[in-house]
C-alpha cells in the first residue's frame, strides 16, 4: 500500500505556522520519500523555505515509516530539538501527521495533502487504486475498481460518456468500464456485465462514520 501525497502550497503552510518562531521538521522514509514529497531532499528544501520567512528550524528527521508505532521512539530520540520548537511541520501523509500528533503535545501541522492509495504506473506517475469502501467489488469487475477509477463510481457499466476508451471528464483519463469490459472479454466473462449490480451498502465506507476494527 502506498499513500500518494503532494506538497501543499507554501502560503497555506505559512498560514498554518502562523506566529510560531521555531519549527521542527519531520519527513517519512516510505511513501512520502517515494512520492518526492517528504524525503531528505524535500525536507532540506522546506528548511530553506521556512528559514526564508524568518523562522528557525530547530532540527529535522526522516522517520523510516511515520505511520508506524516506532515513530514514538524516533521522536523521543530527538526530544531535545523537538522541545526547542514551537510546532512540528510534518512532511508525511495524514496518517504520519496523526501518528506524530499522538505522541506530542505541541501543535503538529501537515505540509502535504494526502491524495489517495495508489501505485506508480510509470516513474513519477501515480494512479488511484482503492477508495477503501469496505465492501470490495473487484470479483465482479475484473480486478479493476470502478468506484475510484470511474468518475461517477458507477457499478453497472460505462455511462454514455465513454468514447474511444476515454472518460468524459478528460482525454487523459481511461474509462474504467472500458478497461473492465476488455479484460472480461479477454477472459470470456462478459456475461458478468449482464447482471445488475445491486445498490451498494455504503455503511461500511466512511459514510458510516469513523471505522474501527477489533481483532
Amino acid at each position: 500500500m502506498k499513500t500518494i501525497t503532494e506538497q501543499k502550497p507554501f502560503d497555506e503552510i505559512k498560514a498554518a505556522l502562523g506566529e510560531a518562531e521555531k519549527v521542527y521538521l519531520v519527513g517519512c522514509g516510505t511513501c512520502a520519500t517515494m512520492c518526492h514529497t517528504g524525503g531528505k531532499s524535500e525536507l532540506l528544501g522546506m528548511k530553506d523555505k521556512v528559514e526564508t520567512i524568518g523562522k528557525k528550524v530547530t532540527g529535522w528527521m526522516v522517520i523510516p515509516t511515520a505511520c508506524d508505532e516506532l515513530t514514538r521512539d524516533a521522536l523521543i530520540e530527538s526530544a531535545e530539538d523537538i522541545e526547542a520548537a514551537d510546532c512540528i511541520l510534518v512532511m508525511a501523509c495524514a496518517f504520519g501527521v496523526q501518528t506524530v500528533t499522538l505522541y506530542l503535545n505541541k501543535p503538529v501541522y501537515p505540509a502535504l495533502n494526502t491524495l489517495f492509495i495508489g501505485r506508480e504506473e510509470s516513474p513519477g506517475c501515480f494512479t488511484e487504486v482503492c477508495m477503501q469502501c469496505g465492501s470490495c467489488v473487484l470479483a465482479k469487475t475484473a480486478g479493476i475498481c470502478p468506484l475510484v477509477r470511474c468518475a461517477k463510481s458507477l457499478l453497472n457499466g460505462p455511462c454514455g460518456g465513454s468514447v474511444d476508451g476515454k472518460c468524459e471528464i478528460s482525454p487523459d483519463t481511461s474509462c474504467a468500464w472500458q478497461l473492465i469490459y476488455d479484460r472480461l472479454a479477454a477472459q470470456g466473462q462478459l456475461d458478468k456485465l449482464e447482471e445488475i449490480e445491486p445498490i451498494k451498502d455504503w455503511s461500511t465506507s466512511q459514510s458510516g462514520g469513523p471505522r474501527k476494527v477489533t481483532l
Binding site: 461517477k152 458507477l154 453497472n156
Partner: peptide, 28 residues
C-alpha cells in the same frame, strides 16, 4: 440519469453523490 460530471459545470469544486447509479435509480 447518471448525470454529467460536475467537472463540466459551474461548480467544479462540489462534492458529488452517486450513491446509486441510473440503473439502480430505475430499480428504486
Amino acid at each position: 440519469l447518471s448525470g454529467d460530471h460536475q467537472k463540466f459545470g459551474n461548480h467544479p469544486t462540489a462534492k458529488n453523490v452517486f450513491d446509486i447509479d441510473s440503473i439502480q435509480l430505475i430499480q428504486t
